[in-house]
Write a protein that binds this DNA or RNA. Structure first.
Lengths: 255, 255
DNA sequence: ACAAAAGTGTTAACCGTACACCCATGA
DNA sequence: TCATGGGTGTACGGTTAACACTTTTGT
């Protein structure tokens, strides 16, 4: 990984464009799943107190995918995140100057940051409990929001989020999203709730289980989940070998 | 549409970055269909004689989609093209300087054009016979190539083309590609050949026809296609009203 | 007349959906 | 013992895939 320069906030406003590609940013929609709810990780800006997607910039000699990985790493503390580029947003109105962002008091004149930006959107799937939400230099706070309760965000970030969700809903049919969103061991009802939450519709318990098991990428453990009321459900985990074999042959999820 | 500056080639190398966003380009994969073959429109560079995808740059205050439309318009002479953004390519090796591009003799020093570029990929569907292939200022030639006979292209353009084709193959299931790739009136066997060519596999004649007609977006004309040997096939056209109604309800092509 | 392409219909296999019964557990 | 959630199996219906026969036209 390419090393990032250490800059103060004022330095960043004044001469960040010596290190980063101008007018190009990365925005990440980080999905998590907790207590039956689909969550996204959002940041709160210091100046306007408004919420936004975690984002960042691309170093002069950095791959855009690596920039996304770096941003994800910084906000969540995680490596090896499942990451997917989904769309690039290029409306000329996408500029901080037209949306009330303020420079630090001691920065005079124009800053590269107030220009119009094109942003490349990525979404990521992470295991909720492993994330350590960490604000960046622009932010007061970094926390999970229920996807259904996301507030009004800066710029076009609500639109970016919507597009990410659509993209995720399409990807759910050829990628086993549970692999990244759930803990290693999980129950079938938990997996089903995940799918129901992402797709926004109820699924038949029995047909769902049949479908999932028929793909042959799940391994049922001897253990059962203890502690809940009622009958203890089996625990499952993804079988990496079978999974990789299945993916090569083009996995199809007919949910 | 925003007006483009009129620059000589040398001026473009020297100060194009006053008008265009630096380090960001657009590349277009323009698909056509002719004589049973899927075609792409390619340009031949003046200096290296190598072939490449038609591309261009984004004006400071221009939407990236509009830039793509402008490029398409310039290379084909067509408006109202069906256009789809499919991926953004951000490898730091994507730089003309590392791939043997030469500046005009009178341009000294560094040019913005030799920097590393991020490029946003679009593909387009056009009616082959309506296209007037037009080279740009960098190119000697502009012509159609059979998708299976495309030569080695500059930079990562072969990879971009591959990704565009994958994206098209996915889109074929929820968009009636024949609408843009075929002439207004066409026969069912022609439509089938188009699908077979894009998908790269043979389809059953009878099942194909049933599927297509069952979507209710085709209108069969009284005329038949004359001139061929053997039995004259019916002509069809897309029924715009039925088509738009069907698209609203989410059209599915189970080919 | 014959070959080759086009129009149309039928059947069997498969898959998705709907649904019923039994078991385990805590209240 | 009852309510609730979990595990498993079966039957129906629709869709897809495989396939056969007839018609048209140029040679």
């Amino acid at each position: 990984m390419i090393k990032q320069p250490r800059l103060t906030l004022s330095e960043f406003f004044e001469k960040g464009d010596q290190f980063y590609i101008p007018q190009l940013s990365i925005d990440c929609v980080i999905f998590g799943f907790h207590e039956g709810e689909l969550k996204v990780l959002l940041l709160q800006w210091k100046d306007s107190k408004k919420w936004c997607l975690p984002g960042g910039f691309v170093l002069k000699q950095e791959h855009i995918d690596d920039a996304a990985v770096r941003i994800l790493q910084n906000r969540t503390g995680l490596n090896n995140i499942y990451l997917q580029q989904f769309y690039t947003f290029g409306d000329p109105e996408r500029a901080r100057k037209t949306h009330g962002a303020r420079k630090p008091g001691d920065v005079t004149g124009k800053s590269w940051l107030t220009e119009r930006f094109i942003t490349v959107g990525y979404w990521a799937l992470v295991e909720f409990s492993k994330v350590d939400p960490t604000p960046d230099d622009f932010s007061l706070d970094c926390k999970w929001w229920d996807i259904n309760k996301v507030p009004s965000l800066i710029l076009d970030h609500n639109a970016i989020l919507d597009k990410a969700l659509s993209s995720l809903r399409i990807h759910i049919y050829d990628y086993p999203v549970g692999k990244d969103l759930l803990p290693q061991k999980f129950t079938m009802p938990e997996l089903q709730t995940l799918y129901e939450t992402i797709l926004g519709k109820d699924l038949d318990r029995r047909n769902f289980q049949k479908k999932m098991l028929s793909m042959g990428i799940l391994e049922r453990l001897k253990e059962r989940k203890q502690g809940g009321a009622h009958k203890a459900p089996y625990l499952y985990r993804f079988d990496s070998k079978k999974y990789q074999l299945a993916m090569k042959q083009g996995l199809k999820f007919g949910i």
